[in-house]
Design a protein around this nucleic acid. Structure first.
Lengths: 195, 195
DNA sequence: GATTTAACTGAACATTCGTTCAGATCAAAG
DNA sequence: CTTTGATCTGAACGAATGTTCAGTTAAATC
C-alpha cells in the first residue's frame, strides 16, 4: 500500500476548494468551468473528480462548510448576559466574521439558486438557524423591556441584511478600519432597537 | 414599405425583455440560454437578434432601464422639506418600488459581475447616483442637528442594504401587507439615525 | 529493487452554447 | 394585384460544456 496519508490529495483537495470558491465568487458558479478550476489548481479537469463527485456537490460542500463554520464560530463567541451585550457581540461578530470570508459569504448568498433542491433545503435550514440566533436575542430584549421591537423575526432579517451589506463596500486597506466600522454599525443597530 | 409601425416587433420586443428578466432572475444570466428565452417568447433563437445585438447587451439594457426607472421614480416622488420627512419618504418609496420589481432588483444586483467592464461602469454610476440621493438627506439632517450620523456615506449604504433586504422575504400574499412592512422599517430607520 | 496503488493525464463522449444567415412568410403600401 | 421589406425560421458554425476512463507516473512500502 503506497501513499496512504500526507500525499498530494491532502494538498490538492483544499486547493481545489480554494480555487473553486475564488472563481465562483468572481464569475459565478454557472460561468466557471471545471477546466478553469483545474487550470487554477494546476491539474487537468479529470483530476478534480478525485475530490468531488460533480460540480454541483463541489458548490454545495463549499456553502455547507461556510454555514457550519459560521454557526460554530458564533456559538463559540456568543456571550451570556443581558440582551444588549449579546446584541453588541452579535453585531461585532457578524461584521468581523463576514468581512474575513468575503468570497464564501458572497457565494453562499448568490448561488442559492444554482443548488439542487435537496441541497438548497439543507443550506436554507442552516441560514435559518443563524437568523434564529439573532431573533432569540431580540425576543429576549423585547421581553425584558430593553428593546422596542414589534416583529423580532423581521427585525432580525433587517439587521442581518444591514450588517452583511458591509461586505459590498468594505476594503481592508480603505479609510476605515474594522474597529471603526464595528462602532458605526453598532451605534445604528443599538439605536434601531432602542425603546 | 411594409409593416413600419405597430407590427410584431412592438409586441415581441417587450416580450423578449420580460422573458429574459424573469429567466435571468430565476436561474442567473450565465445559466440561461438564448434558446430558453426564445422558447419562452415563442420564437426561434435567431429571431432574438432582431431585438438585441447580443446576450450581453440584453442584460445591460435590462439593468440600465431598471436603474433609470428607479432614479426617475424617486426624483418624481421626493418631497422637499425637513430631513426627517425626506428620509421617511425615501424609506417608504424604496420598499414600495423595490418590492414591486423584485426580478429587476435581483438581476441588477446579482448580475453585476456578468457585465462587460464598460457596462459595469455605467450601471455602477447609476447605482452610486441613487445612493447619493439618500446620502444627501442624511447629511442635511446631520447638519441641521436632527440626525446623529458620524459617516453619512456609510449610513446610507447600511440603510439601503437593510431596506433592499425586504425583497428576500416579503411576499405579497404573506402575513404582513406593505403598509405594515413600511411602518416596521421606518421605525427602525428613524431610530437608527436619531440623536 | 520490486511491488503496489493513489494521483493524475489526455483523449474522448454527447450536448449545448452564442451567433450568423440564406431563404420563407406575409401584412401593408402602391 | 404586385411589390416591398420587416419578421421570423431552420439549419449550420466552431467552440466549449460536464463527465468518464484506460493508461501513465511516481511515491511509499516491503
Amino acid at each position: 500500500m503506497a501513499r496512504t496519508q500526507g500525499s498530494h490529495s491532502d494538498i490538492t483537495g483544499p486547493r481545489v476548494r480554494e480555487a473553486a470558491l475564488a472563481l465562483f465568487a468572481q464569475h459565478g458558479f454557472a460561468a466557471v468551468s471545471m477546466r478553469q478550476i483545474a487550470r487554477a489548481v494546476g491539474v487537468q479537469a479529470g483530476a478534480l473528480y478525485n475530490y468531488t463527485p460533480d460540480k454541483q456537490t463541489l458548490l454545495y460542500e463549499l456553502m455547507r462548510a461556510h454555514m457550519e463554520d459560521l454557526l460554530a464560530a458564533w456559538d463559540r463567541a456568543a456571550p451570556a448576559g443581558a440582551a444588549l451585550e449579546r446584541l453588541e457581540a452579535f453585531t461585532r461578530f457578524h461584521i468581523r466574521f463576514n468581512t474575513s470570508r468575503a468570497d464564501a459569504v458572497f457565494v453562499s448568498y448568490m448561488e442559492l439558486r444554482n443548488l439542487a433542491p435537496e441541497n438548497f433545503k439543507a443550506i436554507e435550514r442552516l441560514r435559518r438557524e443563524y437568523e434564529t440566533r439573532l431573533e432569540s436575542i431580540l425576543r429576549a430584549g423585547a421581553d425584558a423591556g430593553s428593546f422596542a421591537i414589534a416583529e423580532p423575526r423581521i427585525a432580525s432579517m433587517a439587521l442581518i441584511a444591514m450588517l452583511t451589506g458591509v461586505n459590498t463596500w468594505f476594503r481592508a486597506d480603505g479609510r476605515l478600519d474594522l474597529a471603526s466600522v464595528e462602532a458605526i454599525y453598532w451605534d445604528m443597530v443599538r439605536k434601531s432597537v432602542a425603546v
